[in-house]
């Protein structure tokens, strides 16, 4: 699992942290944050993709080996949320990299995130 903050307001990071914490324990289902995109199978992308983060997101996506899954976490990642139309926003995550799974919510509850991760790990 590799987390990419493409412009989030760090609200989603709080909840993803909770999901990997001891209480919701996403690791119980085999989901683990790893040190390098090369080790990762899933990209957790949060926030609307700002103009400055479009290229880094693209490169992280290409650095991850096949088969890879992109999970867009939070309303901003799905449709830019309240930041739609801001001049610094390049678009939603789907406009930059192909998205496989979306987790709505601002920020989505840890239970929703863990549920999404379970569908990815299949456990």
């Amino acid at each position: 699992m590799r987390h990419v903050d493409a412009g989030s307001c760090n609200g989603c990071e709080v909840e993803i942290g909770g999901a990997f914490g001891p209480v919701y324990d996403a690791e119980r289902y085999g989901a683990r944050l790893v040190a390098s995109p090369r080790h990762a199978d899933v990209l957790l992308v949060t926030g609307p993709v700002t103009r400055n983060m479009a290229e880094p997101l693209r490169r992280t996506y290409e650095a991850a080996p096949e088969p890879r899954v992109v999970v867009a976490v939070g309303d901003c990642a799905i449709n830019c949320g309240l930041f739609a139309g801001a001049y610094g926003v390049a678009g939603a995550v789907a406009d930059v990299v192909p998205v496989d799974l979306e987790v709505p919510g601002c920020p989505p509850e840890p239970t929703a995130i863990v549920e999404a991760l379970r569908r990815v790990t299949g456990r």
Binding site: E27, R28, G30, R32
Partner: peptide
């Protein structure tokens, strides 16, 4: 020991 369920 850290109170997590752990992946098995």
């Amino acid at each position: 020991l850290e109170g997590r369920a752990g992946p098995g």
